[in-house]
């Protein structure tokens, strides 16, 4: 369990990192917190020619409030999503979901950008990014571009990031004050990769009916899934137990994971609707609390 030889680079600016990515392209990997990459290197499942360590780049480590937006630098450690007061205030789903990433030690090393770029379909941050309609900011030789989260995650550990590009930030729309959020994840042990999980954000009208529902689901497919069929089944409906349970079943066709050591496909199909239903139920309860508190 020792990595094969590689060239190590530690650029101090994004421009420098982009230049290195342009030089090495697909033969390079970005090292941030190393929580997923180092095991892959040590098991020789990844054999990059160059490792581009972005930990020295201060510009990537900022959390900022913009108009209607919370921008989180790619190098921000995951635990800051739990601890930073701005995050809890502006996008309250994030601290809750982040608590499910591995263990506290992992979250102190692991970065926001690292999790997004790794694009594990069972990971929490890609799922919340999709549920929150976040935008990923990347920089390449020709400048900066933005990609909607739903378009960013393309398949099994595959993203829209080009070989010469570096992920620099993620922009989350500020969650409306009246919205409710819920996050539910089922794993065999605390901190394990999820068997399935769901993130939900809902808004209710004055009659208590759904005006918006957005749901991301993790662990059921090659990539994190936006549960559009569930969402449309609920818009305009009352948030009753029956309605939510019925709509949650709409996620089942999206479950494509095969049997593995930890879960059968049949179990995951069942579990997907359970977590979706529970996440929406939790979000509804919060939305009601907030509207009552008005």
């Amino acid at each position: 369990m020792k990595p094969p030889p590689f060239t190590y680079c530690d650029p101090e600016s994004v421009d420098e990192a982009v230049a290195l990515k342009s030089e090495y392209g697909n033969d390079s990997l970005v090292l941030a917190g190393g929580q997923s990459l180092l095991p892959l290197l040590n098991m020789r499942l990844a054999r990059p020619e160059a490792l581009i360590d972005i930990n020295k780049i201060g510009d990537l480590q900022k959390i900022e409030r913009r108009v209607g937006i919370l921008e989180v630098g790619a190098g921000v450690r995951q635990y800051e999503l739990e601890d930073h007061p701005l995050v809890g205030e502006l996008v309250p789903l994030l601290p809750e979901a982040t608590g499910y990433i591995g263990h506290i030690e992992n979250r102190h090393r692991g970065t926001v950008g690292g999790s997004l770029a790794h694009a594990d379909s069972a990971a929490e941050l890609p799922c919340t990014a999709v549920a929150l309609d976040a935008t990923v900011v990347v920089q390449g030789p020709s400048g900066t571009r933005t990609i909607a989260a739903q378009d960013f995650f393309q398949g099994w550990m595959t993203t829209a990031l080009e070989p010469e590009e570096v992920l620099v930030a993620i922009r989350y729309p500020v969650t409306p004050w009246t919205a409710g959020h819920g996050f539910v994840e089922v794993a065999r042990r605390v901190g394990d990769l999820a068997l399935a999980g769901a993130a939900a954000v809902v808004n209710l009208d004055e009659d208590g009916r759904f005006t918006s529902v957005s749901v991301g689901v993790l662990g059921i497919s090659d990539t994190t899934v936006r549960a559009s069929a569930v969402e449309s089944a609920l818009i305009g409906e009352a948030p009753t137990e029956e309605n939510i349970a019925r709509a949650a079943k709409e996620i089942v066709p999206s479950v494509t994971s095969e049997d593995d050591l930890h879960a059968t496909r049949a179990y995951r199909r069942h579990l997907a609707s359970v977590v979706v239903s529970r996440a929406i139920t939790a979000a509804v309860a919060r939305a009601r609390e907030r509207s009552n508190g008005k």
Binding site: R188, H262, A263, T264, A266, Y267, H270, L271
Partner: peptide, 11 residues
């Protein structure tokens, strides 16, 4: 005995 075994038995 795994979660999927338990859910299968429950179902």
């Amino acid at each position: 005995v795994k979660p999927s075994d338990i859910v299968a038995a429950v179902q």
